[in-house]
């Protein structure tokens, strides 16, 4: 039972109020008719399944009925951030790698 911060309601709410909607940031190709069958197939059917940080779309079904995104660690189940639809995550694998590299330089 996750405890999820809705960025629209600006409160933590119980998982029962939400529905998971799969991987976030799946962009619909801007020009579908100019997209190859393979690329369209990737858009429709292929999803990441990472061990560790994952960006997911959630829906506050029993609350504000808004879609938003969450960065969740699929190992610890900790939710590191939630952010509104259309926004970008700040906690990413790349940002973590850069941070780790930065620390290495500082030492």
């Amino acid at each position: 039972m996750l405890h999820i911060y809705c960025p629209y309601c600006e409160e933590y709410r119980e998982e029962e109020e939400f529905r998971p909607k799969g991987e976030a940031h799946i962009a619909r190709p801007a020009e579908p008719e100019a997209t190859s069958d393979e690329a369209w197939g990737d858009y429709l059917f292929f999803r990441k399944n990472p061990r560790g940080l994952h960006h997911e779309q959630w829906y506050h079904a029993a609350g504000c009925r808004k879609f938003f995104n969450a960065t969740r660690d699929t190992v610890s189940y900790q939710i590191l951030e939630t952010y509104k639809a259309g926004q970008q995550p700040t906690v990413t694998a790349a940002a973590r790698a850069a941070q780790a590299a930065g620390k290495g330089v500082a030492k």
């Binding site: 779309q57 829906y59 079904a61 259309g86």
Partner: peptide, 13 residues
């Protein structure tokens, strides 16, 4: 209804 909201909120705001 959820489907319509999703497309409106995330693709065609």
């Amino acid at each position: 209804l959820d489907w319509m909201e999703m497309w409106h909120q995330t693709e065609w705001p």
